[in-house]
């Protein structure tokens, strides 16, 4: 039985969960950059946010138990799992930074500031995570 695919999927879930968690804790609760609801968001934005918020913590919980299951079976492929984690983190952040913030006009990263540097930083970090995930995935495939 190969743990490659399951490790990768578990990592992706963990990455999405972690991105949603950091978003909630750091940007909503600690920095107060994000507003609970800025009343300018579109309805589609609210629905998309609701689904991703709920999916985020459900993904986090599943990732923890999947990780424990992989360890228990001795089939955890660490590189594949890390690749998944980076892909999940970057993918969620890029979706949040482009589709949710821009297309659906759901809340901004920060209010009353010049937004462009924040948007660029946000999406560049997302892209870096995606690249790191892709590199790790290639290495994990090579090692298999």
């Amino acid at each position: 039985m190969t743990g490659h695919g399951r490790s990768l999927r578990g990592g992706v879930l963990g990455g999405v969960g972690l991105a949603a968690f950091v978003d909630e804790v750091v940007f909503h609760q600690l920095l107060h950059w994000h507003h609970f609801y800025d009343k300018a968001s579109s309805e589609a934005g609210l629905v998309s946010d609701g689904i991703f918020h709920a999916f985020g913590w459900l993904a986090m919980v599943s990732a923890v138990f999947l990780f424990a299951d992989l360890r228990r079976r001795g089939t955890l492929a660490r590189t594949a799992w890390s690749a998944g984690l980076c892909l999940g983190l970057g993918g969620f952040q890029l979706y949040d930074g482009t589709f949710q913030h821009k297309v659906l006009e759901l809340h901004r990263i920060r209010y009353d500031v010049e937004l462009a540097p924040y948007d660029w930083t946000w999406n560049t970090i997302a892209a870096l995570f995606l690249i790191a995930g892709a590199v790790l995935l290639v290495r994990a495939r090579g090692r298999r």
Binding site: Y37, K39, L46, V47, D49, G50, H53, A54, F55
Partner: peptide, 21 residues
């Protein structure tokens, strides 16, 4: 069961946010 939980939680969150406004 996880899907039902996800859907209900998402709908709950959307309703809560809409009540804010």
């Amino acid at each position: 069961r996880a899907g039902a939980l996800l859907a209900a939680s998402a709908a709950h969150g959307v309703l809560a946010k809409s009540l804010y406004a």
